[in-house]
Amino acid sequence: MSLELVDVTWMAGYRKIIHDVSLKVRPGEFLGLIGPNGSGKTSLMSILAGVRRPLRGKALMGGMEMHKMGRRKLAQNIGFVEQQADTTDRLTVREAVSLGRIPYLSLLSPWSSRDDEQVARALLDVDMADMAGRYWQTLSGGEKQRVHIARALAQEPKFLLLDEPTNHLDVRHQLGLLELVRALKVTAVAALHDLNHAALFCDRIAVMSEGQLVAVGTPAEILTPALLQDVFGVTAVVEQDMQGKCHIRYAVSEKQMPGA
């Protein structure tokens, strides 16, 4: 099963945010979505997740238009972690992660030991098992982010969509999270700020600029000095290691230095 956008356009008010974007996410891949702030990454992620409906074009899951599917079916297939999500409810970490099981519950399918197992596994995956009894309001920003990801994992999604998932995480948990996503048996899409993270973990990279999809390919194909200059306005050297992984070194001119 795949996710696909076909000639998608989306507007906020009178402003066109996404312009005629077509993108197919291949089954089993880890696709990174990169681009400058304001390039349309978050809006594109929302459309891929079925949260927003395109103004024009189609958003498809398994060849079927998402807006024709029920919310329950979408939630059983797509786990979406947004940038900003909070609650004023007095929830424990375990209760917050348990919300990921709601798409599977009904009068005929009440909470079971399997639901407990999925919640426990999700907490372990994000290194939050020892905080399961903590209240949401007592968590740091990074801890809350890991709980959001655990909630999405508890959904057992076929597609895991993450909008800036490493925000608020320290370096160890940034790397641990991306390693986890790469190891999971899901199709994953993550909007990422750190281009070296995209190069290290993603199978392919899609580049957004001013609401348009300007390039899609492997990290080695996409992360070139020319593209980094054109899209991000930075000068960089791109090197490849023995495994073919890209590493980006940015050149900082004197006029860019603080106090210059």
Results as ranks from 00 to 15, higher is better:
E4G: 10
D7Q: 14
V8W: 07
W10N: 07
W10V: 09
G35T: 14
G35Y: 10
N37F: 05
S43E: 12
M45H: 15
S46I: 07
L48C: 09
V51W: 14
R56L: 15
L60I: 11
M66R: 05
H67D: 15
K68H: 15
G79T: 08
V81S: 05
E82A: 13
E82L: 10
A85Q: 14
I102L: 14
L108T: 15
S109P: 06
S109G: 08
R114E: 15
E117R: 14
Q118Y: 13
L124G: 13
D127P: 01
M128P: 07
A129S: 03
A129T: 00
Q137S: 10
S140Y: 03
G141M: 03
G142T: 00
I149G: 01
R151L: 12
A152Q: 06
A154C: 04
L160F: 12
E164P: 13
T166N: 09
N167F: 04
D170E: 07
V171S: 13
L175W: 13
G176P: 11
L178A: 06
L184F: 08
V186K: 09
T187W: 12
T187N: 01
T187G: 13
A188H: 08
L192E: 01
N196I: 02
N196M: 00
H197T: 09
A199E: 02
D203R: 02
G211K: 00
Q212I: 00
Q212S: 07
T218K: 09
A220N: 07
A220Y: 00
L223K: 03
Q229W: 03
D230M: 01
F232A: 03
T235D: 13
T235C: 10
Q240H: 14
Q243C: 07
K245G: 10
R249Q: 15
R249G: 10
P258Y: 05
P258L: 04
